[in-house]
Simulated scan of single mutants.
Amino acid sequence: MDLGIHGKIALVTASSRGLGRGCSEQLAAEGCRVAICSRDRAAAKQAAEEISKKSGTAVLGVAADMRKAEDIRRLLEDVREALGEPEILVTNAGGPPPGTYASTALEEYEKALNLTLMSAVHLIHGVTPAMKTNGWGRIIAITSISVKQPIGTLLLSNMARAGLTGFLKTIATELAPDGITVNALLPGTHKTSRIDQLAAFRADQEKKTPEAIIDEMMSANPSHTIGDPSDFGAAAAFLASVQARYLTGQNILVDGGNYRGLL
């Protein structure tokens, strides 16, 4: 299927690896001109080169820390200068550290909100003026299955991503008349470094090995496996497509059927 986005300018944040990388690779494969970022400049440049070589499309790699509003402003300037105004935005940020109410220090809450919620707010505020002018735009936020089914050991992530979900749902209605869609992709368990981090945390709590925790995650999933970032990226590419023009304000699970609720 031709998604109709060849030549579109796409910005994917926190994308040198993991789910962001999967989204970047799929958008580049569709012929988008992609900008990626990482806190590590060398990692961003290397990932950009690898994605470019694989897709045959030029990819821009930029250093930016999603915890810092100034970095986000500079990132957007760099993308505009090198490629033009982003027409597709995939917001992503490394998740807050795992923890429970008992183990989470009060000062960690604001950090989590800045990283997970406010980074997306700053990015969206930066790209929407041009999208409105052009009458076309795609905003896709990577959130989590936890916005539907909170995870006990991820208090900060549960809180911040739920807040982001409320923000996205609200602006989807406001931006729809301008031809801009706003959706969220909710990953379940995927093969990323984040899962390694969470498995290590649970292993320490439960006195098990990280490998045993990963096995439990796989066994608990109806598909008896965990997702691959490329699967997730394909879902993002579809949401960015011209065919998805009537799909907005949605929270779409990419979890192998792990979520058991009806809504």
Rank of each mutant, 00 (worst) to 15 (best):
T173S: 09
N258R: 12
E81A: 13
L115M: 10
S223I: 03
L175R: 05
F238P: 01
R161G: 03
A176Y: 11
A29N: 04
R41C: 00
E49W: 13
V254I: 13
P187W: 00
A35M: 04
I124V: 14
T104D: 02
A176D: 04
A63G: 08
L83A: 00
Q243S: 15
E49L: 15
K68A: 12
S223F: 01
G56V: 01
A130N: 07
L156K: 04
D204E: 15
L106G: 04
I142W: 02
S15I: 05
R260E: 13
S144G: 06
E30N: 12
M118E: 03
E107Y: 11
G95W: 13
E49N: 15
R17V: 01
L106Q: 12
Q149D: 12
A235T: 09
A82Y: 02
G227E: 02
Q250S: 10
E77I: 02
L155P: 10
E108W: 05
E206G: 08
G18E: 08
D204Q: 14
T100E: 09
Y109V: 12
L3N: 01
A14Y: 00
L113M: 14
V59T: 06
G61I: 07
I139Q: 05
P187A: 11
L239P: 02
A102F: 08
P210Q: 14
L175F: 11
A43Q: 13
N221I: 06
V182F: 06
D65I: 06
R74D: 15
L247Q: 12
S193V: 11
A120C: 11
G257W: 06
G188M: 00
T133R: 13
D2R: 00
A35H: 03
Q149I: 00
G135W: 11
F167Y: 13
G7T: 09
I9P: 03
I252Y: 04
V34Q: 04
M218Q: 14
R138P: 00
H122R: 11
V90H: 08
T13A: 10
L154G: 01
M159N: 08
I88P: 00
I252F: 05
I195Y: 03
I151H: 01
R260I: 09
S223T: 02
P150L: 04
G261K: 09
